[in-house]
Design a protein around this nucleic acid. Structure first.
Lengths: 144, 144
DNA sequence: CTAACTGCAAAGATTTTGCTATTTC
DNA sequence: GAAATAGCAAAATCTTTGCAGTTAG
């Protein structure tokens, strides 16, 4: 799915949930979808403001909360630091987080879903979402 | 390992890192080690104060930061809410988190370490810690 | 004895909220 | 036109910090 159709998909999801489609929300969703870096609210806000200066930080927070509630973005929170968001795919997936340069990658791991199903069955949990983060040093930072 | 030896183990770790062993720190570590519920700083603070009223919240925060830095507790942070801590084992393990009653369980999953190794090798990451959370509704809350 | 630690209150940072004007549908 | 939303600033967390007095090693 390219970014254009992912954005369209998000817009439809909003409509289906009875939310209104405002220019601010479209700009925010577009910034989230186009970013490769799992941005923070602050970063989304700055990106949006380059093309759309009359948008407030509060609206970014509200939109992100709405997307979280609809289940279309994943929040990655860290102690102290601000949360970062992943809107690239609607389903959960693992993250590789470099603790030095703060880059976040999306590794390709298939065992993940199996693991989730196994745990759900074994413990009688009805799992709604997952989060799996690996913290470490990326190859580039290891060289440096 | 029972709680007593785990506490002794933590005390030795502190000494080895050149930190001092104060009564407050021991009380905080004991509360962390004895809790089954992955407590927040606030909860640790309240627990400690029942037996040791002259302990401050700031000291709990400082002690928790120190234990994190030494690698002896795992922090579980969530958007907005306060972080919760796991001191039961020094190595990372998955968590099952009920989004209704906020209970946190430690499921028994062996595939986890394999997954970690696989990712480290495939992406050239030097992994220092992992986090794996499954959010959902626990059996008790499903009944209610 | 002295470097590290505690406790307090104040400051920082992130996120949420109340309210009024505006806008989508 | 009516209900939802945007923007602003103020508030509500949660967490960290500076400093003076205290304590562990």
């Amino acid at each position: 799915m390219n970014n254009g159709t992912r954005l369209d998909n998000l817009i439809h999801k909003l409509r289906n949930h009875g939310y209104r489609v405002t220019p601010q929300r479209v700009a925010i969703m577009n910034a989230l979808v186009c970013s490769e870096s799992h941005p923070s609210v602050e970063q989304v806000y700055e990106q949006v403001r380059t093309n759309f200066p009359m948008t407030s930080l509060a609206t970014v927070y509200k939109t992100v909360a709405m997307l979280k509630e609809v289940g279309e973005i994943q929040e990655l929170s860290f102690g102290g630091e601000s949360s970062r968001y992943d809107a690239t795919t609607p389903h959960s997936h693992p993250h590789l987080i470099c603790t030095k340069c703060h880059r976040i990658l999306d590794p390709d791991v298939h065992l993940f879903q199996d693991l989730s199903n196994e745990i759900a069955e074994k413990y009688g949990f009805k799992i709604t979402s997952e989060r799996m983060d690996f913290f470490g040093i990326c190859p580039e930072c290891q060289k440096a």
